[in-house]
């Protein structure tokens, strides 16, 4: 095995998942290096969300190797442990804690306290309060800090979720369709934010919006029927015959 590859932040080799005979992932292999941002595209049913499920421990692969940071076998861990290791996930549909305030949403996501009894007796420290304010500023929600998350607009919820992801301070972020339902201006802002985040985190972005992917300007992996169809810059994969056939269309 190539140690350079296996020590990458995320290493998937020959991963397969099937649901009642349907192969959602079919011998999927790919690698994300430290500090890299990667965009994943592909038609519906290509296995993008299942891949996220497998990495975050929601679904167990039937076969395959799944390593995080070269040393952690993700197939043996549950969602909470994987999250605590430093893999954060943003869902396709924004999911925030609707009956908590924006501030409490961030507070709950802050890395650190996770066990039952420490949360029971924990008191919010000054340091934590400062971290929260910084994060709120970064996702432009300072003004809405004391509103209930349920009252936010769709775009604000997406940003709040990104803020929660940052609060976890993960070394790898999995972001599923971050700009779905956003206005063009919001899309551009989100791209900027993600690029900024990518400076000190590894990021995997799943997205349908081609102009957004172009804005990100990163390496692209095309998934099709549960395995990698093509990999490379957006220009290169868009020129690939097979990609045009299955996804982009002529």
């Amino acid at each position: 095995m190539n140690t350079e590859l296996t020590s990458a932040v995320l290493y998937l080799d020959d991963v397969s998942v099937s649901f009642d005979g349907f192969k959602a992932l079919n011998a999927l292999s790919f690698v994300v290096k430290h500090g890299e941002m990667r965009a994943i595209i592909g038609p519906n049913g290509a296995g993008k969300t299942t891949m996220m499920d497998v990495i975050t421990g929601k679904t167990r692969p039937d076969v395959g190797t799944l390593l995080f940071d070269g040393s952690h076998d993700l197939t043996k861990l549950d969602e909470a442990s994987i999250a605590q290791l430093g893999i954060g996930r943003k869902f396709q549909r924004p999911t925030v804690f609707e009956s908590h305030t924006v501030r409490d949403n961030i507070l709950l996501s802050l890395s650190g306290v996770r066990s039952v009894f420490t949360t029971l007796f924990s008191v919010t420290t000054k340091d934590e309060r400062e971290r929260i304010e910084r994060l709120l500023e970064r996702v432009k929600l300072s003004d809405a800090a004391d509103r209930l998350a349920a009252e936010l607009s769709h775009g604000q919820k997406q940003w709040l979720e990104i803020g929660m992801l940052l609060a976890q301070d993960p070394s790898l972020l999995l972001v599923d369709e971050p700009v779905a339902g956003m206005t063009d201006a919001e899309t551009v802002q989100t791209a900027t934010l993600l690029r900024e985040i990518a400076k000190d985190h590894s990021v995997v972005v799943v997205e349908h919006d081609m102009s957004f992917v172009r804005d990100l300007d990163v390496m692209v992996t095309v998934l099709h029927e549960g395995s990698v169809l093509a990999e490379g810059s957006l220009d290169r994969v868009s020129a690939d015959e097979r990609v045009i056939d299955v996804y982009l269309g002529r």
Partner: peptide
């Protein structure tokens, strides 16, 4: 049980 993503 039905398996699959949809059920989850």
């Amino acid at each position: 049980a039905l398996k699959g993503r949809a059920v989850d």
